[in-house]
């Protein structure tokens, strides 16, 4: 389905993109390490310190670099998936956000794209979805890096075959939740001084009452809420992808190439030209 002039589209050198990818990842990790290392002075020290700005710039800047690196390289068939996934994240996230549970379920679209189109597409969806959602709710903006991480990890999990078994998906989802909960904690601490919901706020208060620092308390709250949330999201997504008609789910090159889903033979032989590389 490529355009007759698509051959000239490869002006974007892959080397530069890889470099930008590493730079973005390094910026996110570096910001996290800096915040963990300087943490005691920053919160107890009170006012006039740039920790909030450093957090925002580091995580958001890293997410934007990842976007610049991944988005132009995605094929059109994947690019059209992104706005749908973005809108799905926002709509479901908004619905769940009003219920008052300490859950978010705002990454269904991200994980869905990651399973259908791979880690790069998943990371781009995660980062962009928080940037777009920020137009309606600015408080989700700093969490863009965490959302990108979720998409990236979900894509790798799909590539390694996690979604071939129903029971594996929620387990791996919980593991992904450990990472996303950990990376979100400094943002809640240094940008907002707490959490964005009352349910999660009560959990943080309980840890604070036991004498934890604010960062430790938000990290523990993240480690309680996020694995559960991501386990549910992964379970929903595994349900969704198997509910898709085979016509739709075998259309994605990533799904066929790495045999992401436990396919019936008949589905795969339906496209004999492309089943050569089933084993990634």
């Amino acid at each position: 389905m490529s355009h007759p002039f698509a051959a000239t589209a490869k002006t974007d050198p892959a080397g530069r993109r890889r470099w930008l990818n590493w730079l973005g990842a390094a910026l996110i990790v570096g910001t996290y390490v800096y915040l963990i290392a300087t943490q005691p002075a920053e919160v107890a020290g009170g006012f006039g310190n740039p920790a909030g700005l450093v957090t925002l710039l580091g995580f958001l800047g890293g997410a934007v670099l990842l976007l610049v690196a991944t988005l132009p390289a995605l094929p059109t068939s994947t690019v059209v998936l992104l706005p749908v996934a973005l809108a799905l994240n926002v709509v479901v996230g908004q619905i769940v956000g009003t219920v008052g549970l300490p859950l978010y379920l705002d990454s269904i679209g991200t994980v869905l794209v990651a399973v259908l189109a791979g880690p790069a597409a998943g990371a781009a969806t995660g980062a962009l979805s928080n940037i777009v959602w920020a137009l309606f709710n600015p408080t989700v903006l700093p969490f863009a890096a965490g959302a990108a991480l979720i998409g990236f990890l979900a894509g790798w999990a799909a590539r390694l075959g996690v979604f071939r078994r129903f029971y594996l998906a929620p387990i791996v989802g919980a593991v992904v939740g450990v990472f996303s909960g950990t990376i979100a904690a400094p943002i809640a601490t240094f940008v907002f001084g707490g959490t964005s919901g009352i349910g999660t706020g009560a959990i943080v208060s309980a840890f604070r009452a036991m004498g934890d620092t604010l960062l430790a308390a938000t990290t523990k709250q993240g480690l309680l809420s996020d694995p559960l949330d991501k386990a549910i999201v992964f379970a929903i997504v595994v349900f969704l992808v198997y509910a898709l008609p085979p016509r739709i789910r075998t259309r994605f090159d990533f799904v066929r190439r790495y045999r992401v889903l436990a396919g019936r033979r008949s589905e795969e032989t339906a496209r004999p030209a492309k089943t050569g590389a089933t084993q990634g």
């Binding site: 389905m1 490529s2 355009h3 002039f5 698509a6 000239t8 589209a9 094929p75 059109t76 068939s77 690019v79 059209v80 998936l81 749908v84 799905l88 869905l112 349900f239 969704l240 509910a243 898709l244 008609p245 739709i248 259309r251």
Partner: peptide, 25 residues
């Protein structure tokens, strides 16, 4: 389930239309 199935079947059509108009160029 019906929401996602519906949305994903629209996507293919949109991809062809955008590709034909040179989005990737």
């Amino acid at each position: 389930v019906p929401l996602v199935v519906g949305l994903l079947s629209d996507v293919d059509e949109r991809a062809r239309a955008l590709e034909a108009r040179g989005l990737g160029l």
